[in-house]
Design a protein around this nucleic acid. Structure first.
Lengths: 352, 352
DNA sequence: CTGAAAGCGCTTACAG
DNA sequence: CTGAAAGCGCTTACAG
């Protein structure tokens, strides 16, 4: 293996100088710098990042945390179930951004060992953590909120002494979805989303309420259904809804996520209901699958790129500020959402 | 930070002894071991893995490589496009298995820097690499095949001096799909898959041929269509197919992947064709989405867990054998596939 | 601007 | 069975 020692020898300087040149210190003469660079190229030298991490007491590695409630689950295991394709799309951006910033992304094997979670991260000398907490009260989330490790939560509203979050404007998104339906003439609008997990559901419910209130429509709590954030549960919940209510009693559904909407479409379809002829459906997220559902899904787009860019850039600022955070650095980042109109929404049925 | 020094002091031994106890050396007295263990617990000590990596010249980290052809793409960016949900499901298992073996999973930020790819991995002291090569001739794949880093390729047929692969029995899968259709009475069966990329497509085409030959059916090369491995291209290819041929000229399609099949279903649907009334469709992979397509998709299940378990266990054996491979260690692992019958296949239409 | 020296936290022959 | 010492490949005050 080529070490800095060999580079130093070839360039006729000490290892200290090589190190300085490598790290862009101004205290290196032009000639020395030049010789060192040549030596690096001719030897194909690349610094040993492990040694660097040890001496700097910090690696260029960002850990990914994904807390799904199930304490034993690893990061991706929480994510690649059908219901979480949205997060997957998000992870793609995460990796991209982190790579662009020259950090490695680490999926530590200790996600489940909550007790020593923080310590394990420390022993790996991770520079920071990017966390997605789908479950509100995971012990690891708590630990992270109190730890010194710079952390940005994506899509879950957690703030701590070294942590903050980025999220979509969930309330406004649901407001747009609902207003869109109101403009199409709908008055009896069902909403289907999780009423609890992670405070996201309630925010979206609030947006729904807000839209109705704005136009003076009554809020019928009975139209607010709940289910888990996945295709299957949404499917089941819709079957239930269809047992309880006859068509025309409602003409549209605002759904908590696109993948849930797929379950909704399936249930409607099974009952011989047409979308949007009988019932209009709006999703949330704008997963790329939306274009291939039958019919293609009107939805609220979350600007994933903006979320992730915001998260990663903030995280890196936090890391590089060495724990000296000013106010602005711990302020949450809220990303606007917008309506994408496709074929699953239409005018309210005539007869109603 | 708690170091081994402090543990040693508290236990009244030297750091060397602590290290031995930690690493399960037999050359530690029972009493010493006991005192050390107590000290570890009471101090909450955990070894510094970075320091360990440096001195051992090897970390407990496995790098993930995903080579998509596009040289600049990072690991997940290649994977989370719609067409690769299958790989995502696979990654879930990868992380799980690797975590179970107490290794961390690393997505290095250098995937695009092909030149120094190997060197970068070495400088990170990765123990091994798990690679998914969707593109046949990526430079990094070549480099990996010649490097000393233990590597297992998943789903791409590469063998090198320190590398081997695991894959499904692709040919047999396509054979099962085709035979299933033949048993339902189909005679004019279209196949739609990539004829080139990664040798997987051709293997599946071979399975298709094999099934026809077994029952003495003629092979009509004109029925063998090709497209990229994604929903959109499969959709387009099917539109083309429907321009060229009238229904009844073919009554079934064996598709290269489930996500492609979604595009196929959409195109058929758009032309007013019923599945399976007019055309039967079989996918490949058994992504969990299959249950929610309209109609639910008959497909060939790849046993992802078995693939990943095979890959990870082999990789770890390779790592722990320290470069001393016997024959069996570099032998490819082939995993059986099987037909999952759902609603997208049925008897050949009466009138044909 | 530069080098010698100390040190990051561990492991591992070596000697006892 | 145990400890003193060297060493993994870097960085960084310190002194010049």
């Amino acid at each position: 293996m080529v070490t800095s020692e060999q580079v130093a020898r070839l360039a006729g300087v000490s290892r200290a100088t090589v190190s300085r040149a490598l790290n862009g210190s101004p205290r290196v003469s032009a000639e020395a710098r030049k010789r060192i660079e040549e030596a690096i190229v001719s030897l194909g030298y690349e610094p040993d990042v492990v040694a660097q991490s040890l001496v700097r007491q910090r690696s260029r590695t960002i850990a990914l945390g994904l807390f799904y409630g199930d304490q034993k689950s690893t990061v991706l295991s929480s994510i690649s179930k059908t219901q979480h394709y949205f997060y997957l799309d998000l992870l793609r951006d995460v990796e991209q951004e982190i790579a662009a910033a020259q950090y490695d992304l680490l999926l530590p094997s200790i996600s489940y060992a909550q007790k020593n979670y923080i310590r394990s991260l420390q022993m790996r000398h991770v520079a920071g953590t990017l966390a997605i907490a789908m479950h509100p009260a995971d012990e690891r989330v708590r630990a992270l909120l109190e730890a010194e490790i710079p952390t940005v939560f994506i899509d879950s509203l957690n703030q701590g002494k070294s942590s903050t979050y980025v999220t979509s404007d969930n309330q406004d998104g649901a407001r747009q979805a609902t207003e869109h339906l109101i403009q199409l003439g709908h008055r009896r609008i069902v909403t289907l989303m999780s009423g609890t997990a992670g405070r996201i559901g309630p925010l979206r419910q609030a947006g729904y309420r807000q839209a109705l209130q704005r136009v003076g429509l009554p809020i019928d709590e009975d139209l607010m259904y709940t289910s888990g954030w996945n295709t299957e549960e949404a499917y089941q919940a819709t079957l239930l809804l269809l047992q309880e209510r006859r068509p025309r009693d409602f003409t549209a559904i605002v759904v908590g996520s696109d993948l849930m909407a797929i379950g909704v479409l399936r249930a409607l379809h099974q009952h011989g209901l047409h979308v949007p002829g009988d019932v209009s459906v709006v999703g949330f997220d704008d997963v790329d699958l939306c274009r291939y559902t039958e019919p293609p899904l009107t939805t609220i787009r979350q600007d994933r790129s903006a979320m992730v860019q915001g998260a990663v850039q903030r995280l890196i600022r936090m890391i590089e500020s060495d724990g000296e955070y000013d106010e602005s650095m711990l302020a949450p980042i809220i990303i606007p959402t917008r309506l994408i109109t496709r074929a699953s929404t239409g005018p309210v049925p005539e007869s109603s």
